[in-house]
Amino acid sequence: MFNADVFQVTVAQQVLDISVRNANDRVLFIVRFPDKRPELVLTRLMNLYNKKVWTSIPKGRMSEAQLIGPEIVRHFKSLK
């Protein structure tokens, strides 16, 4: 039995808890903030130019998605 997939990234001097989940065959990153902001669910969409772009699900928190998403990528790249 396992409790899987929690890690942390630091964005704007805040440590965010990130958990990885899956829904509809897509990977979701659920972000929890140390302040009172509600949870943020992130995934990457493929835009018309075949570029992967971070987005919130549902819509509306794109600026946070674009700020936190690259840190998630950086986190996993750093594991190499």
Binding site: R21, A23, N24, R26, I30, V41, L45, N47, Y49, G60
Partner: peptide, 28 residues
Amino acid sequence: YNGQRVTKVEFIELKKLEKAIKDIDALK
């Protein structure tokens, strides 16, 4: 979607995902 130009297929997938995450508690 969220300011990004996406294909119709991708758009539908993202809308499905919105519905799916309403049940996200079951996944936590």
